[in-house]
Design a protein around this nucleic acid. Structure first.
Lengths: 218, 218
DNA sequence: AGAATAGTGTCTGTCAGACATTATCTG
DNA sequence: CAGATAATGTCTGACAGACACTATTCT
């Protein structure tokens, strides 16, 4: 019953076409020098969501991301060598965010295969990435990765970076525009970059995509 | 940092064609006399999953269900009037289970609309029911609600009870049998009950249904 | 026989995937 | 102009929903 409760955050973004996660380098024990998810102890009287936002700001200097949701909790008895700790993990998503302050850094998720993260954070990260990938299928979550206004090509690149592979632009377009409330046309066009300028959109009010945008249909 | 950690379980089953949840009647404060989800404090050195199973057995006398997964955690600062408690909720599913011991009872989920549950258990229950309904779409979870061997009609009734409405038996059959590893024929037929006897099946090895069995297509 | 339940066959509209074609910008 | 990117159009195969029809049992 003497149990500590922490909150850890898997914050994902897209930079240079790759899915990246925010990690902080640990200074003190345990796992000194190892990279870890930003997080810390839940404050007395503090809500879980509020703790996730506060810890993110404290440890990385970033503003809270547009999307933040609870991921799941981790409570293996030996997951922290110091004391019994149950961690409530959160998943945050944001557009190409600025370089963080302090000892924080954006890591490409793929590059972390051979890096040993502190505690059970490798497992938490894997769960967070899988949740994000899965939610792209049936929710308009992809829009959380791009800044408004965005083009359909921007949005398509979110899917391509998260899932790997490439999607047919024509079919992607048809699918997105035929889902009511996924994106709303803004009535302007992107600045030309050597081709026909793309129509601009912003997030719509939809919360679910039906029918879903299926991953394996790539 | 002085925070208690509890584990609560939403155990769902199907009885008499209705989706039901296991609740226990509280004796002491807080909420004396109110119905609550079975649960209690996490033991020292105890894994979260193990605590869910132990508490279910202790409070209801039932054996652990075939399917048990973490739902999510609840940590509103005032959710327990006595002390700060974060609860990790679990979702359990089982076939028509025996009547439980002690002060436990199966409630039809629909009948709980106007019943006030203890703590924030109404919210946890709603989340658990929604998770179960959603997972029926893309996982073979429906088989956790029926005893082996089962007929396709048994399986179809799981969907009908969970989602409401009715499904076309012919289309349901085609869909289920065309999903590799969803169900395996057992090579025997159910005892006749006034009609052609149905083929019997058991759970297959599939973990995901692709393409999913879509709810709104009813 | 008639009722009841299980299982098969078939038609149709919708939609994803593939890909050809047209449109509009930059250099 | 060529090259690049955006947007539209079209064909095809797969499949969900609807529903008619056949099969096998019980009373």
């Amino acid at each position: 019953m003497e149990t500590g409760v922490t909150v850890d955050v898997v914050l994902l973004t897209l930079r240079a076409g790759r899915l990246r996660v925010l990690l902080v380098e640990r200074t003190g024990p345990p796992y000194p020098g190892a990279w870890a998810l930003p997080g810390g102890f839940l404050g007395p009287g503090e809500d879980l969501d509020a703790a996730a936002r506060r810890l993110l700001v404290e440890e990385t200097g970033l503003r809270p991301p547009g999307h933040l949701e609870q991921l799941r909790s981790y409570g293996r008895p030996d997951r922290d060598p110091r004391l019994r700790v149950v961690s409530v993990a959160y998943l945050g998503l944001g557009p190409n965010l600025p370089a963080p302050a302090n000892a924080a850094r954006w890591w490409a998720v793929e590059d972390l295969e051979e890096v040993d993260l502190a505690f059970d954070h490798a497992e938490i990260l894997a769960d967070g990435v899988e949740r994000a990938r899965a939610k792209l299928e049936y929710s308009p979550l992809a829009t959380a990765f791009v800044e408004e206004p965005f083009t359909l090509a921007d949005l398509r690149r979110v899917y391509e970076a998260a899932w790997g592979g490439s999607l047919d632009p024509a079919n992607f377009r048809r699918k997105v525009l035929s889902t009511p409330g996924f994106v709303l046309p803004v009535g302007a066009r992107a600045a030309g970059r050597g081709g026909r300028p793309a129509e601009l959109y912003r997030r719509g009010a939809a919360t679910t995509l039906f029918p879903p945008l299926l991953r394996r249909s790539v």
